[in-house]
Design a protein around this nucleic acid. Structure first.
Lengths: 268, 268
DNA sequence: CGCGAGGGTTTACGGCGTAAACGACCGGGC
DNA sequence: GCCCGGTCGTTTACGCCGTAAACCCTCGCG
């Protein structure tokens, strides 16, 4: 743990003779398996934002199930208990992770909060922004998708009141009735959820087998009972996510445009 | 392997004087919070199916996060370690839960494995079957949705090779090209995933607040910055899931019918 | 009658989340 | 100069978790 900001020359007499910054974290070999990058660059003094950022990076790198308070602390050069000064507990930490991840939308220059270019443009940009986030954090996205929402009107994956407000405003300003706007919000959410969750879970499976680079391929399961699956295996494994996303999104928008023009809610 | 035909009348001398099936399980009050039903009816002798069934029931009742090997064992009147004779570990137990839950489709009289009534009928029945399962096990469904698939061509929520084979067969027999069938499979999966996950997560939030029956409603968060959300709160909280599911499903089928007739794959 | 094996229990270990007590350092009043 | 409360991180401790290993009954069978 590099501790050299010459403006803050010493940090503590450090009575223990061997605190050894690159602590192998006791036993278990866990530390060896979880690299955690360089031992922190500049000795920043720990706050909530830094913790959430580290948590996201940790999950991206090692998977959600590897995230523990102790390991997250270690990745910040700190004991687990130090985190509790900024975060009430692990569950709330995960809530914060979800919130932080979707808040990345605010930093996306291609996504606007107001529907300057019309509602279709708005929904297009937003959808692609969410997709970018999902692909950037495939290990986090399932969390975004499944964490129980705080209120019935906050639906994954767009779990931010501000975005919900933006979206509804855009629709209603564009001539959607209240009913139609709400129905559109729901259809849009479900579209994003389904497509992106499918996409990241597929991405996960392409990586996660994680070893066995054997010449004999795929003797895992017996496929002899599923001839069509075998025949189409090539096609089934192909990844057309981007095109399919675009196509389905456009279809959805087209459908919603019909709803808007006719002023009816889709289900009746 | 039921072996208690009255030929095996007694259970065991039971040297311990107080095995008490409704074990309060030490401290922590956890046991009080987890009823676990009657202390097991007939002393059935434990096998994999029974374990998986108990696990599903446990999750349905207490939520996924409450499921531990010890508690699951207790709900079966057995020590945790006894489970390991039938299940390699907790992860595989969860895999088994997922598999068992979607295998409930085989017992659904309204769902057929072959497309006797045409592919649209087939997909309709299948979709509603999956929806019934999702609604019957809302706490399990997120597991179905997010557990990493075993292979790239098995996509949630229909994570069974047999159903994939059925589905592809139905489509191809009905005149879909190979490409179109695979694309349809993907669109269908993503539709089910999105709709059902949204639906069960919403169902969760309606129940889970779990207390606070106070007269003053909903002072949880400040909504003053989100006037549209406030205005539409009533609409947003309304649950039109069934109609929306039906509508979206029909739209999807209609879209796929176009694809089928024109022999093109949707994205190009 | 003995004995091997199947099926459940006991014991044990390291890791987890986290409550509570405990320093070490710091800036500000005297 | 000195003390003193406050901030921030550490130590210690507890109960629960998943699970490896050893153990022990009881039974069916020779």
């Amino acid at each position: 743990m590099v501790r050299n900001e010459d403006t803050v020359p010493m940090r503590r007499p450090d009575p223990d003779p061997a605190p050894d910054p690159d602590s192998p974290e006791g036993r278990g070999g866990a530390a060896a398996v979880l690299p955690a990058g360089p031992p922190v660059t500049g000795r920043t003094p720990l706050d909530r934002r830094r913790i959430l950022g580290a948590a996201i990076e940790f999950i991206d790198r090692n998977g959600l199930s590897a995230l523990t308070m102790r390991r997250l602390g270690a990745s910040l050069g700190v004991e687990a208990m130090a985190l509790y000064r900024y975060v009430p507990g692990r569950e709330q930490l995960l809530d914060g992770v979800v919130e932080t991840v979707i808040d990345e939308l605010y930093g996306d220059p291609d996504v606007h909060m107001r529907a300057a270019g019309g509602w279709q443009d708005f929904l297009q940009r937003l959808a692609h922004g969410v997709r970018r986030i999902a692909l950037a954090h495939p290990e986090v996205f399932p969390l975004v998708a499944t964490r129980p929402p705080a209120a019935p009107w906050v639906r994954p994956p767009l779990r931010s009141l501000r975005w919900v407000e933006s979206l509804l405003t855009a629709l209603i300003d564009s001539g959607f009735s209240a009913d139609a706007a709400v129905a559109a919000y729901r259809a849009y959410s479900s579209f994003l959820l389904g497509h992106l969750l499918l996409e990241v879970s597929q991405k996960g499976v392409q990586i996660s087998p994680e070893d066995a680079p054997e010449g004999v391929p795929d003797t895992g399961t017996d496929l002899s009972q599923y001839p069509l699956v075998v025949e189409l295996e090539e096609l089934l494994s192909r990844d057309e996510s981007a095109a399919e996303f675009e196509e389905a999104l456009e279809n959805l928008l087209g459908r919603l445009e019909g709803v808007r023009r006719e002023g009816r809610v889709p289900g009746e």
